[in-house]
Simulated scan of single mutants.
Amino acid sequence: MTKEVFKAILKLKGDVSMLIVDHNLDLALALSDRALVLDRGRISHLGPAAPLLKDLDYRHEKLWI
């Protein structure tokens, strides 16, 4: 089911704006142009998604994972 939903999101990408909230971080970041990270109700990151996907040290710094 998850694969089907993300395939549909990929087809719509570029045509409409979307907000993805998901536990599959790698897949969500791969589909995203920008990422917004909330930490205890505050924005701790707002910017391109690619660095969070590709740089695990940066991801650990921003997401604590």
Rank of each mutant, 00 (worst) to 15 (best):
D55Y: 06
L52Q: 05
L52C: 10
Y58T: 00
A50T: 08
A28G: 08
A28Q: 12
S32E: 08
L29N: 08
K54Q: 15
R40T: 00
R42I: 00
R34I: 05
L53G: 06
L31F: 09
L53R: 14
A49C: 07
L53K: 13
A50V: 07
D57M: 08
L52D: 08
H45A: 06
D39M: 01
Y58L: 15
L46S: 10
A30M: 13
R34K: 14
P51K: 06
L56H: 13
L27M: 15
K54P: 00
Y58M: 11
A28K: 12
S44R: 02
P51S: 07
I43K: 12
S32V: 02
D39N: 08
L56R: 14
H60N: 13
L29E: 12
G41C: 01
R40P: 00
K54E: 14
L38H: 01
P51F: 07
A35D: 10
K54I: 02
Y58H: 14
H45R: 01
R42H: 10
Y58P: 00
V37S: 03
D39Q: 08
L36Q: 06
L31H: 12
S44P: 03
D33C: 05
L31S: 13
A35Y: 06
L31T: 08
L29C: 06
L56I: 05
L36C: 10
L38F: 07
A30S: 13
L46Q: 10
L38K: 00
K54A: 08
